[in-house]
Amino acid sequence: MGRSADYTIQGFLYQFNQTLSELLKAADDATITIEGIVEDIEVATFAGIKAIQCKYHETQNNYTPSILYDPLLQMMKHFKSNPGAKIQYHLFAHFPNNPAVNISSNELKRALNSKNKELKDLIAEVDGVDIDGFLKVFAVSVTPKYSDLMEENSKQIEALGFNKGEVETLFYPNAIQIIADLSIKHDEKLRKITKKDFLEILRRIRSTAVSQWTLALKTRYKILETRRKQLKENLNANVRLRHLVIFPKFLEQFDDQIVLFIKSFIDKYHFKVSHTHTPLFSLDAPQELFDEIAERLIGKDVTPNLGRPVKTFSEANFFREPMIQKDKKEFALRFIRWDDYKKLALKTKADDFFVIGDGDIENLDFKDVNLEILGAEKFDEIKYMMGISNAY
């Protein structure tokens, strides 16, 4: 499929919003199956069982099939390159006045014979594709205006008894996140949910989901601002044991920002003598990179406790309290690789456990722990939500 992951994210958000609309209008006991997605087809992060493209035109005066040649060729290229992959291809298209959009073998042949110079290389790569085979796994949907669909869903949520003032920044983004979380499950049985169960889950949530999905919504700024307010009370407390796990995979400028982020956190939340609980940072990184970052922290006068004087890890050494000399602590943080953290037999659980980035935490025990998931991709936004900076 190539191109930008933004198109894919937008396509899935259409899908999630349409699923949400279906859920909200269903009978309480009606079971809705969330259409699944799986990671890593060809686009940066997403794709899978249903490979989606989105062609959205609010200002296009007239619809012509040629407008869709590029995404159609992208999909046919992927289909040709992945024979037997059992992938369904879906094109969401929006144009003013919602014209009928029918894609036949004749339209696909016209796309392959297009004289558009910008499509020349793509057409060459698609040459010889099985058009009839592609049409069997292809579908196109004409969608309503995206903002209209969002507004309709928000009003439906409000009509179901949810607080109007919290719909935009709490219930609507969390509704999208619930659907997104279900969509990544491989087993179709686990992607089924009733309207009644969906609404019960939604009513129990009191913190705004922050992820690649919710931050792609048009309410991005309001979501960040709301999440900042939600985190403020616990972060401002002097005596809180905080564990932070950082997953670098999708974090932008990770290598440039990680040391600055850790130092900024320490400077903000662990600089007083009254800050008696040493924060723990766990990094999902190979040993060589982890050691390099530890050295760079020392270079910034932020001394980490690695739990090993030289090579051998000692849990007793790792969890001892720092010596304090003239108001200066021996070490400012505990620093451990994620693979090693998961093996620890924690005698004391964290008060707050922050997940930064996108990673698997399913096997950890979070009973009696305040779990905060910040799935943003930019450190500036993470620092803003955590009150470390006032801008992003």
Rank of each mutant, 00 (worst) to 15 (best):
K77S: 12
E200R: 07
D352A: 07
S211P: 02
I262M: 01
K232N: 09
R204V: 14
K185G: 15
S105Q: 14
G2C: 03
I361F: 03
I103S: 06
L182Y: 09
D380I: 00
I41H: 14
T8E: 15
A345H: 09
Y63A: 13
I123F: 05
I201L: 11
S264F: 00
D301M: 06
A47T: 11
D360S: 10
V355W: 00
W338V: 06
A332N: 06
E39V: 10
L149G: 15
L251I: 15
E58L: 12
S104R: 08
K120A: 15
F335A: 00
A111I: 14
D365V: 02
L364N: 08
L224S: 07
F281Y: 01
V142F: 10
L217Q: 07
Q156F: 07
A93H: 08
F319L: 02
D6Q: 02
K300V: 02
T348E: 03
I382L: 13
Y146W: 09
D197C: 11
L364T: 01
L306F: 00
K115T: 07
A209Y: 03
K195C: 08
K249V: 14
H275V: 02
R228N: 08
F95G: 15
I52G: 04
F331L: 07
M1W: 04
C54M: 06
L215T: 06
V142K: 11
D127Y: 07
L160S: 14
V302C: 09
S4Y: 05
R242C: 06
T31K: 09
K268P: 00
Y7H: 10
R3S: 15
L13P: 04
F265C: 01
K109F: 13
H270T: 01
V142R: 13
N97S: 15
A26V: 04
N174L: 05
H186D: 15
F318L: 03
F250C: 03
W213R: 08
G359E: 09
A85S: 15
N106L: 13
T226Q: 07
F138V: 14
K120Q: 13
E362T: 12
S154D: 03
Y341W: 04
F354D: 00
E125L: 12
F250Q: 11
P322S: 04
Q53W: 01
A93C: 13
Y221A: 15
N236I: 03
L371R: 06
E315M: 05
L135D: 10
F46R: 12
N305M: 12
R228H: 02
G299T: 10
